[in-house]
Design a protein around this nucleic acid. Structure first.
Lengths: 230, 230
DNA sequence: CGGTTGTTTGAGGACGTTCAAGTACTGTGG
DNA sequence: CCACAGTACTTGAACGTCCTCAAACAACCG
């Protein structure tokens, strides 16, 4: 591993609080891969051989890649360890992993990862915290899919992705719209139309830039039972 | 804790492989509650005070309980530790927990649970395995919601819930249909209609009993892109 | 600059919801 | 044991949302 990569790793939520020698111990036998956008790390049904940690970039987890349309289940960014569950249980992946942009990925051999989880309580706990956060991402997504309309899901995503909590905000969509549509459980056409329907509520979008004039107004729209237009 | 409850606990996936003294150590300060169907263990937005382990019975996690309709996100049964993520992170629950039938619940004080996760590597790892399985449940659910039709989701649920892997099967629906409909992301009416549409494929239902004449045929129906009727 | 890919907009249709009524089930008390 | 109330489940009709298909437009990259 390059020193720069080690430095990146030391900033991540899971490794930040570990003793330096523990980090070094875990990363022994690991390596880093710099891969281009579109690269596939593994496919649905594969047996896991590595656990992956994102140092830089963005990775999407997709399903139905081969047949039909591929739909994104969730995206992860720097510091995230993704689909360790398959590694922990040593069972085939339920999703495929594809880079949403050029990324640097730390590859931890599956057995190494499991061994350190068993032997290093601190590591197990910090990873448990991250998996807990990721669990909550999926829960929120299921809630949104089950009881929000398409425009409401888009609005919720914008609110969640903005650093501002109130008033006006600017958001950079972190993935292209086609992929984002899948993550939100709709087609690209529906995403486009949903954004159009949010325009009266102060949402304007140019490319990946989205401007919101009033987040609170959007939040209110998200929580109304009735998503009637204008 | 009653000896019978201890015996139940010793059969669960998480506690089965722990040393007896470790189990006893963890359960010190815990207590068991026998509660009736419909009882609410906690509500969305509450701060977690206990981690819950199901000894017997069945618990549903719901959202939007107060306003609108309450929708089930997932159900858990004996041996499951549920929503520990909120406990681990010490953040408010995203869902409410309601008993789907009379149950016995082991209540582990939140701080006790966190402390043992930190201090007992075996416990952390076995729980990590369970959370990993639960993670995969949510992933499967999201996949189904995003790329299966309502009848296909019902079929997938039946297949998943049956002990047989092939040929004919009998399934006992573990929750009433109203709640099951929410779990499957549809209304009770749609569930009823979906089951009706599966009839030509050899699915007959009487109450909570569902008979399938040929699981493989159902499985094929699940995976077809086109869910055209009959 | 042309080709490819991503995004918007339109029209039509399928799926699922909503509302409403009717039927079957479950448990309770007479 | 039966009658009854309350609930769960089914079925029907109308509506709305979202998807599909198709075309035009914009953006990006070699």
């Amino acid at each position: 591993m390059r020193p720069a990569d080690v430095a990146l790793l030391r900033q991540t939520a899971v490794f930040r609080d570990l003793r330096p020698e523990a980090v070094e111990h875990i990363t022994r036998g690991c390596f880093v891969q710099g891969l281009p956008k579109g690269a596939v790390l593994f496919s649905e049904g594969d047996k896991p051989e590595f656990c992956h940690v994102i140092l830089t970039g963005r990775v999407g987890l997709f399903t139905g890649v081969g047949a039909g349309r591929d739909v994104a289940v969730e995206f992860f960014g720097p510091g995230d360890i993704f689909i360790a569950p398959a590694v922990i249980l040593d069972v085939p992946y339920l999703m495929s992993a594809k880079l949403a942009m050029d990324s640097r990925i730390l590859m931890v051999p599956a057995e190494t990862f499991r061994r350190h989880l068993r032997q290093q309580p601190d590591f197990a706990f910090t990873y448990l915290q991250q998996l807990s956060q990721h669990w909550r991402l999926l829960v929120e997504q299921i809630k949104d899919l089950k009881l929000k309309s398409a425009p409401q899901r888009v609005a919720a995503y914008l609110i969640d992705g903005s650093k501002q909590k109130t008033g006006p905000a600017t958001i950079n969509l972190r993935e292209e719209r086609k992929l984002l549509a899948g993550r939100l459980g709709m087609t690209p056409e529906s995403l486009s139309r949903s954004l159009a329907r949010l325009r009266p509520l102060g949402v304007t979008s140019r490319g990946r830039q989205v401007l919101i004039s009033d987040i609170d107004q959007l939040r209110q729209f998200c929580n109304t039972r009735d998503a009637s237009p204008s």
